[in-house]
Design a protein around this nucleic acid. Structure first.
Lengths: 115, 115
DNA sequence: TCTTAATATTCGAATAAGCATATATCAAGA
DNA sequence: TCTTGATATATGCTTATTCGAATATTAAGA
């Protein structure tokens, strides 16, 4: 992935919010991201797919759920950018609402499926 | 400027190369950027105008020449990101060529106009 | 197998981006 | 004022992006 492609991944609010949440939470499934961002499922899914195609995210299926996380095999130059992007987005109202909706979500798969 | 708008500014190769050169050189006029990137003048000018409209760049006319530089009044969260972007782009072949063409440019206004 | 929840994909439409070419503006100097 | 070099903008076109709505797929459980 080239630098400009990396920035293109973060150039859309929906994608940037997903990537930021994933940095903060580690691993989230599509329904959690859908609830957190309060957007339609196809919209979230489409953006996650494009982030995966660029190599920024990695997906893994666990039963019914598909989890996404930041691809651990990204080139070195991306880490500081991701870290500073997180810092920039974290303080926005938009992102605070995302986090709040995520925490207040009912039936989060992690808590339901355990053991 | 929102974070996603900031990233959109850097999501195009032409714009990213301009911003990177400007970070490295401080201040360049349109003809220098045109020579460095080896692209058409209208193309460069259009992208510079959009970077200016987003507030990422600042322009200043000095006689015939219009100089562009990184806007010194950017929000704080942009500085580390710009620094990271510079580091990421600097090592690319594309950018090395840009720098080389700039250094080998004839009649650079800075050198010609002095005193 | 039937159903349901989760996720992905397709389709068509609207909008935005990007480009090359041509032309306009602006400043300096003859 | 005329010309020239530097820069900006307009035009017409093509391609990308984004979206909502509908539909397909997948996995789990009854």
């Amino acid at each position: 992935m080239s630098p400009s492609q990396f920035f293109k991944c973060l150039s859309d609010d929906t994608r940037l919010r997903c990537v930021t949440l994933l940095q903060k939470e580690g691993k989230l499934c599509v329904c959690e991201l859908t609830a957190a961002l309060a957007l339609s499922q196809p919209k979230i899914s489409r953006h996650l797919a494009s982030l995966r195609q660029y190599g920024l995210l990695q997906d893994s299926r666990e039963g019914q759920w598909v989890y996404y996380q930041i691809n651990p095999k990204l080139p070195d130059w991306t880490s500081p950018l991701l870290k500073n992007a997180l810092a920039a987005v974290e303080s926005t109202e938009l992102f605070k609402s995302d986090l709040e909706r995520l925490q207040q979500m009912d039936n989060r798969p992690d808590t339901v499926m355990c053991c």
